[in-house]
Write a protein that binds this DNA or RNA. Structure first.
Lengths: 228, 228
DNA sequence: GTCTATAACCGGATAGAC
DNA sequence: GTCTATCCGGTTATAGAC
């Protein structure tokens, strides 16, 4: 069940070749239509060999996920280093997510449901995928901390995780979006990022203090207690 | 792909028997461990016959979903007819969801991910499962309209759908919950239902008017425009 | 036309020899 | 680390029974 790390040069080559073939085929034919046999065939190895490196088809998806995360992080690096306005940073970051994932739009549905499955090793709430999730959460921490927005400490603590969840929500919307150029998703992103920044500033209002404390306390409790 | 409705008495009997066997087996062994062959065997029909009534294993899940919905609706009927306080109605309704689903806790993970899959016929955002979703949304409309809370029209319009989504969120939390007696989920329910009612009352504050209009407009737009 | 059964297909996963 | 052979379970084709 663990991820196999190749021990030899030859092993590394095989592993990389299998992964490449898989990514290509996912993109060409979609997730279900890509069989483990077709991946092995295109790579030029046997079916059994594929399983030596990737204990299941799902584990190939995990690599796929890592792949797009790296593309995404690279795509927004310039923005994050020059821009200070939080709304702009956030909007640019989320827009870049859907742009980066666009080539995989057709595959995304199956992948999303795999990831959402609590029984899957890929579920981001614990398991093999957790380290990668933490990287993405860290990326949103950078989005926030690199801005000139002054955010109360209790909100700042939980915000990156909330933004990661928000990103998931946008991706789920995007999966259903069939508008030309995926314009609807972009509209929703523009509207929601603005709204989020506005709500953060409103959270300082005295009347909202009580609810804010309760909400943040609840989130913290959910996140930090084990198994839930 | 359509749902097959038996045309004869004998057909009805077979269909009901298959469904019963499936529900029992799901509960006994979980979703994955229950094979279509085992369902057919327990029913005393052939594998092919099962497929005459249920075009896929997923379609059995849809019936399962309907089954629990009916148990749930029956369970909360007394509460809804006697209680007028919104927070109490909402808390009781959501608590009853997890209580009703408790016997299926072990199966729920697989089922949830099946349902979340945009490619699945069971996805509630369109497809075969939509009528059932509408029934559940209607149930939340009753929870709200039967209370003595005075809710602005724009909120009241979208609230039932939001509460259905909220229920989904609670169920997802509950799936992960391994605390004894599922106490954590019950705690989260109590806290969140209270919070929701509180936030609805706060929504009338002048400072929040703008955000409220924007949020409700956005939700309405997402719900009502096709394909998204 | 409605129901039931048998036999096969397909693809993910595994065992075990080399 | 690589292969072949096999299992297992969802699904389908199709022939016959009522």
């Amino acid at each position: 069940m663990a991820i196999e790390v190749p021990k030899t040069r030859r092993g590394e080559t095989s592993r990389a070749a299998i992964l490449n073939a898989a990514l290509d085929l996912f993109q060409e034919r979609g997730y279900e239509a890509t069989t483990m046999r077709s991946i092995a065939e295109r790579t030029g190895v046997s079916l059994g060999s594929s399983y030596h490196y990737f204990p299941s088809k799902e584990h190939l998806v995990l690599e796929f996920y890592r792949h797009t995360h790296e593309l995404h992080a690279a795509a927004i690096a310039p923005l994050l280093s020059r821009e200070k306005d939080l709304a702009t940073r956030l909007r640019g970051t989320i827009r870049a997510v859907v742009v980066t994932c666009e080539p995989f739009h057709a595959v995304a549905g199956s992948i999303f449901s795999t990831v959402a499955n609590p029984a899957s090793p890929l579920n981001p709430f614990g398991g093999v995928a957790k380290p990668l999730r933490d990287e993405v959460v860290q990326l949103y921490a950078d989005v926030v901390s690199g801005s000139d927005a002054r955010i109360p400490a209790d909100i700042a603590e939980m915000l990156p995780l909330m933004l990661w969840l928000y990103q998931m929500g946008i991706l789920y919307f995007w999966i259903f979006d069939r508008s030309p150029g995926r314009l609807r998703t972009l509209e929703v992103i523009d509207e929601t990022t603005d709204l989020i920044v506005r709500l953060i500033s409103l959270a300082n209002l005295p009347v909202l203090r009580g609810s804010r404390k309760r909400i943040l306390g609840l989130i913290k409790d959910i996140v930090e207690r084990p198994q839930g």
